[in-house]
Amino acid sequence: MADGAKPVGTQRTRLIGGPGMLLVWLYGVMVVGAVSRSAYQISTEFDRAPLAYSLSAIAALVYAFITYTLVRGGETARKAALACCAAELVGVLVVGTWTLVEPSAFPDATVWSDFGMGYLFIPVLLPVTAVFWLRRARTAAAV
């Protein structure tokens, strides 16, 4: 972001105030869950379900990036987070549908299998909530 674009006298838009804090916690949990799960599975039994474990690793990266942008704050971060949440939502929907349509491609579950059922559907609910929150954060910053 060019510094000139920043409104004078304001700090970076804080993205972790109020409900944002709850989002950071849930994303943090997903980061720890997805990172440790994919690291463990890829290092011990990658050959069993390479596709599933790779997808889990990608999910872990996306979660880690979103968490970082939320904590960092600012307009660029907000936009990046918004794009990633959209990508995340698409990922959950595609992988979720894929696991239902063609279970044979997935000998083992991914984080996003069955729309994240193994994680209380948090993977599919989180991006929707986050997109609402991030859009609201922009409105608040504009006022």
């Binding site: 972790i16 105030g17 109020g18 409900p19 804090m21 709850l22 950071v24 916690w25 849930l26 943090g28």
Partner: peptide, 21 residues
């Protein structure tokens, strides 16, 4: 972890974070 987050967020959302934790 959530205890520290609720210290940083002194509102109802801090309590909600602890509940989620």
């Amino acid at each position: 972890a959530v205890a520290f987050m609720s210290l940083a967020e002194r509102s109802r959302w801090g309590s909600a974070t602890v509940a989620a934790g």
